[in-house]
């Protein structure tokens, strides 16, 4: 049911963990629904120099988190804000229909972390 790419990211997720002095932290989802994604970003001169995630959820939730971190790593904040769930799905070579919400959560988690970064910078 999952693409090889999804299974590869599930088996070897990239950028798992936390950032102790993160510049922004975003958390979306809830345990009741079975998905929580937490993203940590480190920002220097408007560039995301590090990004880490922790996810409670299904295989698609873990794979989309992993892929989303890869897609924004080293990007400018402006570029990262343009991340779409569609881009995450494409990079994973597709997701089953009932799992598309995971890619939306991944997009939202990145954006929540950036939003937190702006809040802190204010």
């Amino acid at each position: 049911m999952y693409s090889e790419k999804v299974m590869e990211h599930f088996a070897n997720p990239r950028n798992v963990g936390e950032i102790v002095n993160a510049d922004g932290i975003g958390e979306v989802g809830n345990a009741k629904c079975g998905d929580i994604m937490k993203m940590y970003i480190k920002v220097e001169n408007g560039i995301i120099t590090d990004v880490r995630f922790k996810t409670f959820g299904c295989g698609a939730a873990i794979a989309t988190s992993s892929m989303a971190t890869e897609l924004v790593m080293g990007k400018t904040i402006d570029e990262a804000l343009k991340l779409t769930n569609k881009a995450v799905v494409e990079a994973l070579e597709g997701l089953p229909g009932e799992k598309l919400h995971c890619s939306v959560l991944a997009e939202q988690a990145i954006k929540a972390a950036i939003s937190d970064y702006y809040e802190r910078a204010r």
Partner: peptide, 25 residues
């Protein structure tokens, strides 16, 4: 506690073990 069933099944499958879960996913 603190983990989700589908992930358990997929990870078990990677180890060659077929099991099931009552998770929503």
């Amino acid at each position: 506690g603190s983990i989700e069933g589908e992930g358990i099944i997929l990870a078990m499958d990677l180890k060659g073990i077929a099991v099931s879960s009552g998770s929503a996913c």
